[in-house]
Design a protein around this nucleic acid. Structure first.
Length: 273
DNA sequence: CACGAGACCTGTTCGC
DNA sequence: TGCGAACAGGTCTCGT
């Protein structure tokens, strides 16, 4: 489900509070309920139950598609994968279906990890690098330049679409924003990475940052029943627009499968050389 | 190294 | 109406 803009929106909501929800910063963890064991990637459930109570939430951040909780002793990391979500609830609320982990906090609040498809994972570790260490650069980082991207693209001989989805190449892009960025950059999803000119790399760099920034501005995209809150879905140019006219040229948007993922593009605006 | 297929899961929508 | 297939915002592992 969530890509960088959705994860950013969720993390910011937990950090700053939103729409009546209070911030979780400085809250102390009271109790933990792990309702689906496989949602916990690390450590063992016994250690998880032992370590968490008493710790205080210092900061809540995003790295790639991970939500990172800096606790007083450890780091709690959450990856929402396809259908995960983090909800703040009154501690008295009835347990919703698909809650996989519930963390009771002071102030009669709880943080709930809800995940219908059970793909999401949680880590609790003193060494967050062991989880985040293989991630590529943050596309919105000031230090990430078009020249960096050009160099990275030329270090591989790969199709652009799967390369952009590779989190060790660049952290945060998913299926929606990869398709949207490629369309904005007028690059075919199957273009080989090391064939890009500096100008094309510059365009791709600009497009990636622009679609992500617009996504964040819109609080992410809400497509089906999973995620609610954002409205970037109303601004898709190609994603899930198969057969509909391209807004640039009127050519019907086409869909193909690349790396087992639906890929949407305009055959006229994004020709394959 | 690059790529495709299968696995992990549940829920919704589509096609007959 | 019913029912199976296709599909969904992700990532890992294995085989070629």
């Amino acid at each position: 489900m969530p890509e960088l803009p959705e994860v950013e929106t969720i993390a910011a909501g937990l950090r700053q509070g939103r729409a009546g929800q209070p911030s979780l910063i400085d809250r102390r963890i009271r109790q933990v309920h792990l309702l689906w064991e496989r949602s916990l990637a690390w450590p063992s459930p016994a250690e998880f139950y032992d370590w968490l109570p008493g710790q205080v939430i210092g900061d809540i951040r995003r790295r790639g598609k991970f939500i990172v909780f800096d606790l007083s002793q450890h780091t709690l990391l959450v990856h929402l994968r396809m259908s995960g979500d983090l909800l703040v609830e009154p501690i008295t609320a009835p347990l919703a279906p698909h809650h996989r982990l519930v963390i009771d906090l002071d102030g009669d609040l709880r943080l709930a990890f809800n995940d219908a498809r059970k793909f999401g994972r949680v880590w609790l570790t003193a060494d967050p690098q062991s989880v985040l260490g293989s991630l590529g650069p943050e596309p919105l980082d000031e230090a990430f330049t078009a020249q960096d991207l050009h160099r990275m693209l030329h270090a591989h001989e790969r199709q652009l679409k799967p390369l952009l989805l590779d989190q060790s190449f660049l952290a945060g892009l998913g299926n929606i924003y990869a398709d949207e960025a490629l369309h904005m950059a007028r690059l075919h999803p199957l273009t080989i990475s090391n064939s890009l000119s500096p100008e094309q790399s510059q365009r791709l760099w600009q497009s990636i940052r622009q679609v992500l920034e617009e996504g964040i501005l819109r609080n992410g995209a809400s497509i089906d029943w999973v995620y609610r809150g954002g409205d970037y879905q109303h601004f898709f140019k190609v994603y899930q627009r198969t057969g509909n006219p391209c807004y640039n040229c009127g050519t019907p948007i086409e869909r193909l499968v690349v790396g087992q993922r639906s890929t949407h593009y305009c055959p006229n605006c994004q020709p394959l050389k």
